[in-house]
């Protein structure tokens, strides 16, 4: 069993953190082989920022999967770039508050999450990635949600303790959206 996940967006959106949280949780809660590969443009802020995560029962081949089971999109340009990198039948997660364009794929499940909006309502735009992470976990169920959240709070909490409550709320709101989308697709 191999799960390949591609997360794409813009530098500063917490793209790499999203991928690392999945990997760290997988390390602590599973026996899977885990490979994470980041890819970013020359600009430190505002350039493209993507990462590839593979969780597998067998040793991982390429750190950059040719096709992914799940693609998480945080920006229009990422949608354009990575829409085709999704396996048919896979799931495409889109932060619709940032990504204004619509996907062309009709052979995949689409999970729309207004993560940016939710984050602003909660009180800080920076927690949008946790909202997306909640939706992703709620939908895919590939890792235990409480463990993912605990890893997130531990990792982000150390850096930004003031965002702890907001991150938790964002994650839970995302979870609700992800779980509901899953139920609708089944």
């Amino acid at each position: 069993m191999e799960n390949t996940i591609l997360i794409g967006g813009i530098g500063g959106q917490g793209i790499l953190m999203f991928g690392q949280l999945l990997c760290q949780t997988a390390l602590e809660t599973t026996d899977k082989y885990i490979t994470y590969f980041p890819s970013y443009s020359m600009e430190k802020r505002g350039g493209t920022s993507d990462c590839y995560v593979t969780l597998s029962d067998e040793p991982v081949g390429s750190p950059k999967a040719e096709k992914s089971d799940y693609v998480v999109i945080f920006a229009n340009q990422a949608l354009k770039k990575f829409e085709d990198a999704l396996y048919p039948g896979g799931a495409l997660f889109i932060d619709t508050s940032v990504c204004t364009e619509k996907p062309n794929r009709t052979d995949v499940h689409i999970v729309e999450v207004p993560a940016g909006e939710i984050a602003r309502e909660i009180g800080d735009a920076r927690v949008a990635n946790l909202c997306m992470l909640g939706a992703f976990i709620g939908y895919t169920e590939i890792l235990p949600p409480d463990k993912v959240l605990a890893t997130a709070l531990k990792k982000i909490g150390a850096k930004r303790p003031e965002l702890r409550a907001l991150n938790e709320e964002a994650f839970n709101k995302g979870m609700e959206i992800g779980t509901a989308a899953k139920a609708a697709h089944v």
């Binding site: 990997c23 390390l27 082989y33 885990i34 490979t35 994470y36 980041p38 750190p63 950059k64």
Partner: peptide
Amino acid sequence: GFTGEMMEP
């Protein structure tokens, strides 16, 4: 650069 940049346990 792949091995240098990638993260694994």
